[in-house]
Design a protein around this nucleic acid. Structure first.
Lengths: 106, 106
DNA sequence: CCGATTGTACGACATCTGTCGAAGTTCGAC
DNA sequence: GTCGAACTTCGACAGATGTCGTACAATCGG
């Protein structure tokens, strides 16, 4: 590995984020479940421990969609991938959006 | 016409609205333009006057998607269809969501 | 009544998207 | 070194979705 090795997977900067992409990422039932699970665990969660009604590969697909939209951040930790909500960036760009989504009646 | 004639087109009640459907509706560039245009005109806007890069039929399609998700309300007024944002319902169900979306950097 | 204006309905079509299974990769433990 | 655990990658595939053009419907003004 190089000395500049990054444990954090590629994700858009705050400037690169687009609201329609964020909304599209949030507009899927499985991805919304992931976001709700991450909201309850500010320190991050291993992808695998979130209960989801899909297979591993589909899970990977949704996590990448969320990451590329800028909704979550992922870092490698051993063989685990830890995910966290990018709360600060989302709140800065779209104040109230995330809270509104999380406040939705279940 | 019957005495119970309704000028307001069918739309979900507040209880019937689902957050993932709302987010999905908002997650399209054209529909987002519509919402931004409606946000600037609380009294309602005729569908046709919103500048959009699509044809009439596509416009109708997007307006129906927004209406069926509960984002907008439509009523007939002569040969016009007036659309309005369902601000009160959205704010009640998902406080902050709409404001966050509208605050997005253009 | 006629025509113009507005918008909807329908069918077609290319693309996107969510889903899966199988195979590959990376890391930690023994 | 070998095994298992945790994810990713790839290819495939069915269904959803955005788009258009044409045809149809309703309303208002002369």
């Amino acid at each position: 590995m190089s000395t500049a090795d990054q444990a954090i997977l590629q994700q858009p900067t705050r400037e690169e984020m687009r609201v329609e992409q964020v909304l599209h990422a949030l507009g899927d039932p499985v991805r919304l479940m992931i976001v709700q699970a991450l909201a309850a665990a500010p320190e991050g969660v291993a992808c695998g421990v979130i209960p989801l009604p899909v297979t591993k590969s589909t899970r990977t697909h949704h996590l990448r969609t969320l990451r590329e939209a800028g909704v979550i951040s992922m870092r490698t930790e051993g063989t685990r991938r830890m995910s966290t909500l990018r709360r600060d960036d989302l709140d800065a760009l779209y104040p109230g959006l995330l809270d509104g989504v999380l406040a939705a009646p279940r």
